[in-house]
């Protein structure tokens, strides 16, 4: 459960103040599938960074599962990010020198699970994304779609409250893209909240909610299917 109220973000470089995001309210409930759309330079990245606790808002309150996370110190915010948020990036961002198992393992390591627990979670996550048994493979040996699935497994393994996906199919061909989107919807149906930035109108329409960001202003609309229905 995500609650953002009165959140805004500005940057000051020299004497110039740039307002990246104007004050907004947003509430995301457990199980939501939210698509974030908007033109380039609209503030989508800033929005994503803040939602993912990669940046602090200039003003406002941000609550995740009842915990205020807006102005925590580095150690605390790292911990919460580690436990509650999973990331999926456009360019996968797997570590090429580590194999699949170790890549999925990364966020778990910062959580001090026992090695038995980590093993269970990793195997579970890989199975969920359909890559069971690929433990020893290295990212360069996998296709784009497979790499993204590993990234999704990595995001899942820690049982996060929310998965943030930044144009997850941007670097994939349409077939792989469909597969990944199907996977995301499966995960969402199983109960994980998903917030996804996308340029793809079709993908946006398949989401439960659509958030528009334009010139730093947030607005929401309902997907066509819902509107029609």
């Amino acid at each position: 459960m995500l609650k953002m109220s009165g959140i805004s973000k500005h940057f000051i470089v020299g004497n110039v103040k740039t307002q990246a995001l104007h004050s907004f309210e947003l509430e995301i409930k457990q199980g939501d599938f939210v698509a974030v759309v908007g033109p380039s330079g609209s503030g989508k990245t800033t929005f994503l960074n803040m939602t993912g606790m990669l940046e602090q808002p200039s003003f406002g309150q941000y609550e995740i599962d009842g915990v205020q996370v807006a102005n925590l110190n580095d150690k605390e915010s790292s911990r919460i990010r580690n436990e509650k948020i999973g990331f999926v990036f456009q360019s996968f961002n797997l570590i090429p020198e580590l194999n699949v198992y170790d890549n999925v393992d990364v966020p778990l390591r910062y959580r001090h699970f026992s090695s038995k627990e980590r093993k269970a979670r990793i195997e579970n996550a890989l199975e969920q994304v359909g890559l069971a048994g690929r433990h020893k493979h290295f990212p360069p040996q996998l296709s784009g779609g497979q790499q993204q699935r590993v990234a999704i497994a990595r995001a899942l393994a820690g049982s996060p409250s929310i998965i943030l996906a930044d144009e997850p199919t941007g670097n994939l061909d349409s077939k792989m893209a469909d597969g990944v989107m199907a996977l995301l919807h499966d995960i969402n149906k199983a109960g994980t909240t998903i917030v996804m930035v996308t340029h793809n109108d079709e993908q946006a329409q398949q989401a439960g909610r659509i958030v528009h960001i334009s010139d730093g202003y947030l607005s929401e609309s309902t997907p066509l299917q819902q509107a029609i229905a």
Binding site: S78, R81, N82, F87, V106
Partner: peptide, 10 residues
């Protein structure tokens, strides 16, 4: 990447 995934500066 590691920071994003939850590694603290420490």
């Amino acid at each position: 990447l590691r920071r994003a995934l939850g590694a603290s500066k420490q």
